[in-house]
Design a protein around this nucleic acid. Structure first.
Length: 277
DNA sequence: CGGATTTCCTGCATGC
DNA sequence: TGCATGCAGGAAATCC
């Protein structure tokens, strides 16, 4: 599932090859990612536009595009199984589950694949983009995310720590896998209510949010199943996971058996020894 | 208001 | 082997 480290890895992989390219044509094999927008409108809007810049915000990939005098943004969300794969020339066969293909003027291709068809494409003008981004919380790896920022975000909320970490309007980019790893490293029980966190625990949590996400990026993301980078390669962080997907296995720290429960509607892995209720 | 549940979707693991 | 069933989950919509 592409979370912050995976999306960041994809964006870094696309920036070089796609910068400055002009979209010559688009082929759609599904329209589910377009929402209310029709295929014709989507294709018409993007064809002949130039990619000025690619950046990440939370789990969104933002393509800053220009067509004539008009500048706008394509916001792509990969949800669980979406991938963007760049090919410098036409491959022999399309990747499996290809939903859209972008052909550029230099004869290179960008494939959007998505097994479960949950991914979304949204075209935003500069005004809509501002509103859109204002709904997202703080970037956890930005200087704006200080220990005090986290302290203030937690203040006054009563929800569980895991639900808090997953809520994109507070901190953006953390998904199910990294949330579990962050909580394990912070020795926090996933259902622990925010008011019960001590200042020391919050300071430690802040440190671990940043550390785990940075490690994830360094390893090129987590490929538990579908995730691939822009070159179609797997990440390595699945080798470093300590609790996610490890139910029934021994905790590396205390040898307790890793448990799986449901928190905020998500499968949640934790160590009952290290993360006591 | 806010937490819980449902919805979208397909592939894969499981069990009979 | 084959089939039905359940599960995986990000975010929006809906429910309670």
């Amino acid at each position: 599932m592409p979370e912050l480290p995976e999306v960041e890895t994809i964006v870094r992989g696309l920036q070089g090859p796609l910068q400055g390219l002009v979209i010559e044509s688009i082929e759609l094999f599904s329209t589910s990612m377009l929402g209310e927008v029709t295929a014709d409108d989507f294709i018409a809007a993007l064809t002949d536009s130039r990619i000025k810049k690619i950046e990440r915000r939370g789990k969104y990939i933002l393509f800053k595009l220009q067509k004539g005098q008009k500048s706008f943004t394509l916001a792509v969300h990969l949800r669980m199984t979406g991938n963007l794969i760049y090919c410098s020339k036409r491959p022999m066969t399309r990747p499996r589950h290809t939903r859209a293909v972008f052909l550029f003027h230099n004869e290179s291709f960008l494939f959007f694949t998505d097994v479960r068809k949950f991914g979304s494409f949204r075209i935003l003008d500069d005004n809509q983009k501002t509103i859109f981004l204002s709904c997202l919380g703080v970037e956890p790896l930005s200087p704006a995310f200080s220990e005090q920022t986290l302290q203030k975000l937690i203040e006054g909320k009563k929800t569980s720590i895991k639900a808090f970490l997953l809520n994109q309007k507070y901190i953006c980019g953390i998904g199910n896998i990294y949330a579990d790893e962050i909580l394990y490293r912070s020795s926090l029980y996933p259902e622990k209510p925010l008011p019960k966190l001590s200042k020391k625990e919050i300071a430690n949590l802040w440190h671990n949010i940043r550390e785990v996400l940075m490690e994830g990026i360094k390893a090129g993301g987590t490929s538990t199943r579908d995730y691939r980078n822009a070159a179609g390669e797997k990440g390595d962080y699945q080798k470093h996971l300590l609790v996610y997907g490890k139910a029934g296995q021994k905790c590396r720290r205390c040898c307790s058996i890793i448990q799986r429960i449901k928190v905020a509607g998500r499968g949640t892995y934790y160590c009952p020894g290290c993360q006591p209720n």
